[in-house]
Design a protein around this nucleic acid. Sequence first.
DNA 1: GTCTATAGCGTGATAGAC
DNA 2: GTCTATCACGCTATAGAC
Lengths: 195, 195
Amino acid sequence: MARTQGSRADITGPLIRDHARRLFARQGYAAVSMRQIASAVGVQAGALYAYTPDKQALLFDLMESHMRDLLAAWQDEPAADPLQRLENFVRFHIGFSLDHSDAVFLSYMELRNLTPDNHARIADLRGRYETALENILRDGIESGMMFVDDPKLATMALIAMLTGVTNWYREGGRLDRQRIGDIYWGLARGAVGAA
Amino acid sequence: MARTQGSRADITGPLIRDHARRLFARQGYAAVSMRQIASAVGVQAGALYAYTPDKQALLFDLMESHMRDLLAAWQDEPAADPLQRLENFVRFHIGFSLDHSDAVFLSYMELRNLTPDNHARIADLRGRYETALENILRDGIESGMMFVDDPKLATMALIAMLTGVTNWYREGGRLDRQRIGDIYWGLARGAVGAA
DNA sequence: GTCTATAGCGTGATAGAC
DNA sequence: GTCTATCACGCTATAGAC
């Protein structure tokens, strides 16, 4: 089958996702036009519709694949020491959030721009991730290594604290990632009463 | 001076601000039209421009007045015990955030939709508030009551943790505000090494 | 202060050529 | 798969009547 003029299907798809993610994160879904995305990619707006049925599906795909990537990347070791598992989680969450800061930002800022059905699916994935942390806290409490009044609230509090790194982190700043992980692990360990 | 037909200047201004705040917080600044705000208030879109020069100024006014209200509401007692001051801050921040959740959400979600000049002014106000907490932590460290590696990061971490309450809190939920304050104070106290 | 009407422009999405 | 052209609509903001 002969290639049609100017076709670059193998790279255009990923480029659309990359630029859309970046633009949505920086300006907000509603503020970004399909023309703007197309311009960043280097195609005309009409060409985008060969890859996505509409703008909403593009947003949902970005958020869903991010949540699936996050869940797939987190590898718990349920048999290990709960404190060690918590330290792993803290360092993992910070590292993943900084490596995918646009997707992280998108996935908790643009929930409101999803259709109700799409919203429910993302919320479900998010809930699974929160449960992963909550289970660590419950195991830590049960084993007497952690002291937390309310594991559910502690889960939300810790995730909010850790994700907050993306709000101020700048590449090449005062602290490197290892050091940031150390500091946040110290805060988290204290918060769960295991200082 | 005779009143013109249908004029309700005394209440329209606040109503515009109230509805704009609510709509911006729920749907995002870019996704809300001036017509939508006007409709919620009960006037035609053109009438809004008697109260604001444009949409951007309306957003900025909402954010700036929120930050000023926040700074005015926080009353530190520099002479008191640093731990007591931290507890006060924790309970204050959660209470204020829940009482003004739309404004809180707006003020950290829509920074990207401000002009650079307006952005700098909001960032300055936010910085002052962060400094208020940072000073408590520094005093706590100096007095040997707190153990924190990096007061700057601990400040960002604590504020992110506390503000996160607005993400999941629902009126009439499992926990009342007092109890939520107790739990978060426990987490914060532990995080700063004062459990 | 509020209304109606509208200018001027940008939007998401589609049709049809290549 | 990409382009050009376009439809139909919504947007911010303004003008002028009352």
